[in-house]
């Protein structure tokens, strides 16, 4: 019984972390048809920026509780600066090219960003451990969990609800759906497609950076921390159905629970549990669990 509780708790915490990263990835794919390999680098950028800013905040003698806001601000900063630079400065020259070519463009971008991060922050690790312990812990049976993990779960839920509300209830969201359905017709109807792309990529970047910023207090921020994350996020997004935010949420929960069950019950399976889930889901539902509502044009 306590194992089941632990599997659920650990699974949901992991799922929340996965969803934060995968949400931006699936959104960018849904709108722009770009499978962004550089997503992990944006996550890394978020983590480094958060580490630097929170460090400065605490050294400045500001109230420690404010560091949570600084984490969010770091993500926003990365999103608003890097997002537009990458989209306007690079990606817009590649629209209309084959999807595979776009993957390779972002792969090249990933290589460049990895070295740029190294040039700015060096290879030494950075630490912002304060926020992790700040809220204390809570006991769940024999196990103890930091309340910070609950905060990450709340953040993931908030992001999911905000995206859903933003897409379904706002004008901008409706324009977005129109562009997803038909890029050319939307443009003909007077929708500024390139603006929609700019906003989408900026939001996606901010989400990736938020994932990194919220992870930073729980780890050492080191070079290459985003590499492993990319392929995990891919798996989640593919399981859920490319381009679908609810799909990414379900994919994250599924992967989180299966991985956590593997760790508790069959640790040898942990290494490929995620890919097994992905292969099984695709074998049964070739396009993922939630096929995005729009018709793919053939």
């Amino acid at each position: 019984m306590s194992t089941l509780a632990a599997v659920l708790a650990d699974g949901m915490i992991y799922a929340a972390w996965l969803f934060l990263i995968a949400a931006g990835l699936t959104m960018i794919y849904g709108v722009m048809r770009i499978l962004n390999m550089a997503h992990g680098s944006l996550y890394t950028l978020g983590a480094y920026t958060a580490a630097s800013l929170v460090g400065a905040w605490l050294r400045g003698g500001h109230p420690p509780l404010g560091s949570f806001l600084v984490l969010g601000a770091a993500a926003l900063l990365v999103g608003l600066v890097v997002g537009p630079i990458v989209e306007r400065g690079l990606l817009r020259f590649t629209y209309g090219r084959d999807e595979v070519v776009l993957v390779l463009v972002t792969y090249a971008l990933f290589l460049i960003l990895e070295d740029l991060v190294k040039l700015v922050w060096g290879v030494e690790s950075y630490y912002v451990t304060e926020p992790y312990g700040l809220l204390g812990t809570v006991d769940l049976g024999p196990l103890t969990y930091p309340i910070y993990s609950g905060l990450v779960v709340l953040a993931a839920i908030a992001v999911g609800l905000a995206l859903r509300w933003g897409i379904e209830r706002t004008r901008a969201g409706k324009l977005l759906v129109a562009v997803i359905h038909d890029r050319e017709v939307s443009a003909a109807l007077g929708i500024d497609v390139s603006r929609v792309f700019l906003v989408t990529f900026t939001v996606g970047t901010t989400l990736a950076a938020l994932g990194g910023a919220l992870t930073a207090p729980t780890v050492a921020v080191v070079p290459g921390m985003g590499v492993e994350v990319i392929v995990l996020a891919f798996a989640v997004v593919v399981i859920g159905g490319l381009g679908s935010v609810p799909g990414a949420a379900l994919g994250a929960v599924l992967v989180g629970l299966v991985r956590s069950a593997a760790v508790h019950l069959l640790p040898q399976l942990e290494l490929f549990s995620i890919y097994l889930v992905m292969a099984l889901v695709l074998a049964v539902r070739p396009r993922g669990l939630f096929v995005a509502a729009e018709a793919r044009k053939i």
Partner: peptide, 28 residues
């Protein structure tokens, strides 16, 4: 037998999943 049913990005991702499972088996 399975892969031949898939196209586009789904083919790419299923082939990726298979290769990562193989990677895991080799590592263990």
């Amino acid at each position: 037998l399975l892969l031949a049913r898939y196209r586009t990005i789904f083919f790419a991702m299923l082939s990726l999943a298979f290769s990562m499972i193989a990677y895991g088996l080799l590592v263990e």
